[in-house]
Nucleic acid binder design. Sequence first.
DNA 1: GGTGTGTGGTAGC
DNA 2: ATCGCTACCACACACC
Length: 735
Amino acid sequence: MYRIKAANTYEKRPEDPRGNSYVDYRHKKQDKLDEQLNQQKIDDLFVDCVIMLNGRLEPSANYLRQLIGTHGGKVVFQYMPGVTHIICQNLSASKFIQYSKKTIPVLLPKYILSCVEHKTLLDTTEFILPQLLLEQTQQTQQTQQTQAQEPSPEFRMSQINFNYVVEPVVLDPDSERIQQKLQNLEQQIKIYQLNEIAQIDYGEVIQNVQNTDSQKSSPTQLQYIQNSPVKTHDKINVREYHEQSRLHHLSQWKVEAQQFLIQNPPQGPKPNDTAAPLFMHIDIDCFFVQASYSALSAQQQLLYQSLPLCVCSSSNTGQNSTADIASCNYVARSYGIRNGMWLRTAQEKCKELVILKYDFQVYSEQSKRFYQNLLDISSQIMPVSCDECYIKLSGLISNKEEFMTELKAKIKRSTGLITSIGLGSSLIQARIATKLGKPNGQIHIGKEQFIELIKHKTVDFLPGIGQETATVMNSIGIYSVGDLQHAQLNLLQQTFGEIKGQQLFNSSLGIDSLVFKPIQGGQQQKSKQLQVSQNFGVRLTTLLQLKQFIYNLLVELQAKQKERNQQINRIILHLNVVAKNANPQWAKNGGCGQCEKTTSSCSIQGEVTEYYEQILEPILSQFRVEDVRGADIVGVCGEQQPEIIRNKTNKINDRTSLNQFKELLNNFQEQQQNTNLITGDISQIDQIQDENVREKVKQVIGLQIIKRGNLDDVLKYDDFQQKNYYMQQMWGEFL
DNA sequence: GGTGTGTGGTAGC
DNA sequence: ATCGCTACCACACACC
């Protein structure tokens, strides 16, 4: 759910009454403060110093500034020539590189305090930032620091909700190995005692892991568990788990597709940028089903030819089975079966439903073959997933129908798979064309047709609009794509944010918010983020388990980082904790159910696993073990920060689109003025004190009244009052 | 104005 | 009528 900025909780930044910019305001304020401090000066301790304060500091930068000021020093917040000391605590990776080149000492805030205490400028060597020392002393000091940290005293073992813990966990009924491991888990959980936890020597645990890790045979062979005094966590080997996770593979295949295109650069002609834009979107229909089917024997294929098929991890149809359908063919869909539906439910709808098994190997091969067929079409391909991509065709195609027919036939011959193709003058138009044509479709949509064709679809038909966005849209009176096309842009932007609002509006008009980024052959693809997570089959009840699990994930992240040859300068840790009032039924067998999510992150320099304690500490301090009620799910995300972080793009900047959009807006406003639909008494709105809220309510009501006829109808409409949090708040305020 | 950090939504089968 | 894995985007807010 989008959080709407509550007008009364947001205090605007003070503005200079003379209308100067905030920067001027700040400089003047700083000069004034310097002056004041100079008057209160105690001594000339720092008189020759220009001290730069950087980032978050403990004690706060404000305090340090006053301290330095009253001792005769000058403080700056940005680097400039003449700076004599840099004070900071935690350098981001970019700053690290920047500062490690400078000859100016980079010191901990403790330096200032100590100098004041001893009333003299001390030698700086003792206070150099550990991060920078690390560089020189080859990590020795860092290791000591890490090991010296005690587990947070807030952590206590407490009552564990065993009812929840011992709930049967079924990853894959066919896998005895998994079953065995999970049984072990249950037994282990039961024998846990408080005193055992207290005895763990974390230093030793880490040491053991590092020893095994350095053998490099397999980075995730966690032998430390066998050496550990308490055996706990061998049931969760992240890599083994990922081997049988379809979503893990799905994500990996996308990377593989990218790498395939890098290694086999498309040889097709270069699209003509001056010609009318033309993009193709191509997608394999129900990829998993078709691929699994293609791996069957000819005899079986004949047997299943026109039957409802699906791919599911399990064929267990028992009452409690919650295995879900990864993909189903169009025959099955005619029975009302959908992707993601529980197998049990699906079989109630169609008893003849044939269940095919996952075959990850085949999917991977078919994906490669699929891409192989696309290499000679154009030089610009942008993969979306293992079975789906965009291709730029501007100025390359003469007969569109013929081109699509031939391409589909070619892929069918090579892979046996049926595809759908869409052509359009933007990515989203092509994408929608594919969607409209499925299955086995080939459609070309012109700019003009687009708006008409999807007018009557619900908003979630558009890519980028999922459940949450659709709910919020409904609450402001937008249900169909047509509604969105005629919506007020400023209302959208107020609700969804400036950029997002514009993007949504653009999408409804067939204007891209997605940027076409073709793979550059031969160039190493660098992602901005690497992530490792496991949210299934995890039941943690102790601090030790939690720590070991996170360590496992970090090890896996590190392995991944090395495989991809990427640098990581920040680690983000996501922790899901079972919500206080979570319905236990919601946690599917092994799933996590309703959770509260927390995140913490830290900048890193060096090996990922060395930041084990640092990343854990802030997040652990927010939870106590009693909050961790049995099922905790953890993901670790390493991030390589992009060079340009903020870009405000995606505004309509091409003249035609801008005019088109203005015209639409005018039409709508005109229509609104000429209508007699506004019949309800809306005078109460004027009683709302806060101007922002008042204006917003007016806009929202304006739209609602158009939809519903009059104010009474608006108020009666359930969704309007219940679904959206901010609407509830606002209505509550004046009703 | 800029940076750092935490939150949340979406797609793909 | 819900969860799962990964990469990415947009945004709020704190802090300077």
